Structure formats: C-alpha cells, structure tokens
Amino acid sequence: MRRHATQPEPEHAPVSMRTVILDIHLDGSMAVTIDGTPYLPPDDAAPWSRASFPQIIDHASEERTVPVRVEVHEVDGTSFTELLPARPPRPAPASEPTPKRKKQVPPALVEVTGEGFVPGEDVACCLIVSHTDATPHGAARAVLDPKQVKGAGEVMLVGRISGTVVTRSLS
C-alpha cells in the first residue's frame, strides 16, 4: 500500500459571474438589473424589451468575456435561469508566412519576323499554326509556342495580299 503525500491546493483565479435579472412587465417591457444595480436603456431609447436581450447580455458579459447567470421573471409568476458561459478568447491572428512565389519564367516562344508586307495585311505562318497581321510599316511578327513548331526546321510568313513570302530557319 502506498501513502499519498498531501499536495498543496492549486492556485486558481477567482471565478467571477455576473447576474442579470429580467423582470418582464405586462406590456412586454423589462426591468433589468445587473448584479443588483438597475441597468437602464439609453436616454432616448424605448424601454427594454425581449428584443433587447442580446444587447443586455453583451453589456453584462463585457462582450461575452465574463460568464453570466440570467434570471427571467415572467408576469405570470414563472421564472427560469440560464447560464451563459464566456466565449474562449480568440487567438490573435497568426501572421501568415508569405508564400514563396515561384519565379515566373516567361514562356519560351519562337519569334519569326519579316518585311515587305502590305500594311495591315493578313500574314500566314506556315506550318500554318496561326496567322498574324503586318504592321503599318509592312513588317510581320509571329510568336509561336515551341510545341507548335517541334520538329520543324523552317517557318514561312506568307502575305495574303502582297504575296510576300519570308522563310526563316528555326535553328
């Protein structure tokens, strides 16, 4: 058999709980006391009513940081009691680590240029994977995805109006 050593009582913070008493009147208004002290509605506000319950509880519980015992005394003599616990404190928002951004690599494109086209004309890019327009100075530029020209050795730019053909090597 083992003997238990006496351990000192743990130190606890004193428990504090507010008491709210709601006395309901015949007209539906309420008289409110918090810890025995009358709690009156704001000067220009209507008397407390059941709709005021959340506002009263928030005030008495210091925005739900203190537990509250609520007693409701009805006109017919019935009453009930409810205990509303305090909400656990919300943790401070943790500073989220800045996500590491991947360095954006511009797409590797193949550019093919040529001159001698009619300004604004439609220029075909042969292997014909796309079309482009000539600039106001008669130049054409096609930017192609390397997947489109994989295996091709040359690309042709063909002016649909001028008939200009420019051949460029891809290597």
Rank of each mutant, 00 (worst) to 15 (best):
P85V: 08
R3Q: 13
C125F: 02
V143G: 05
V143L: 12
R141W: 01
P106W: 11
M156C: 08
V123N: 02
H73G: 04
D145A: 10
T167H: 00
T78K: 12
Y39P: 00
R141M: 08
T164N: 13
P97H: 11
R64Q: 10
V155M: 02
P99R: 07
G151I: 01
P8C: 13
I161E: 06
D122H: 13
R90V: 15
I56E: 02
S95K: 09
V15P: 10
I56R: 12
I34C: 08
G77K: 09
S171R: 13
A60H: 03
R50V: 11
V166R: 07
A94T: 09
A86M: 01
V155L: 00
H137V: 06
E11M: 05
E74R: 15
F80S: 07
A108L: 12
P14K: 08
V110D: 04
V143S: 12
P91C: 00
A108D: 07
T65K: 09
V155S: 01
P47T: 08
R101L: 14
S130F: 07
T135I: 01
P42I: 01
F80T: 06
E96H: 06
P42T: 04
T135L: 01
I56K: 09
S61W: 03
E96R: 10
V66C: 04
A13K: 08
T164S: 05
G138H: 00
V166H: 01
V68C: 04
A92S: 14
H131V: 11
E62W: 11
T167A: 01
A86S: 06
D27L: 05
G36L: 02
T135M: 00
S29T: 15
S130Q: 15
E111T: 13
P99E: 09
P93R: 13
D122T: 13
P41W: 03
D44I: 02
A94K: 12
V158E: 05
S29I: 11
S49L: 05
L40K: 14
D58S: 14
P107Y: 09
P10D: 07
H59P: 02
F117W: 01
L144P: 00
Y39N: 08
P119V: 00
T81V: 14
R18T: 15
P97G: 04
Y39D: 10
E62D: 13
H12E: 13
T113P: 06
Q7M: 10
L144R: 01
G159C: 02
E11F: 06
S171I: 00
S79K: 12
D122Y: 08
V15E: 15
K147A: 15
R160P: 00
H4M: 12
L84V: 12
P10S: 09
K150S: 13
G120D: 11
V129T: 07
T167Y: 00
R90D: 14
A46P: 06
A92C: 08
F53L: 06
P136Q: 08
P85I: 06
G36M: 03
A139C: 09
A94V: 10
M156Y: 12
Q148L: 13
Q148E: 15
P8F: 13
V110M: 02
I161Q: 05
I24S: 10
A94Y: 07
G159L: 02
R50N: 04
E11W: 06
H137M: 08
A134C: 12
D43I: 11
I56Y: 09
S169A: 09
C125M: 09
P54F: 06
T113K: 14
E9P: 07
E121G: 03
K147M: 14
L170C: 00
A124L: 15
R168D: 00
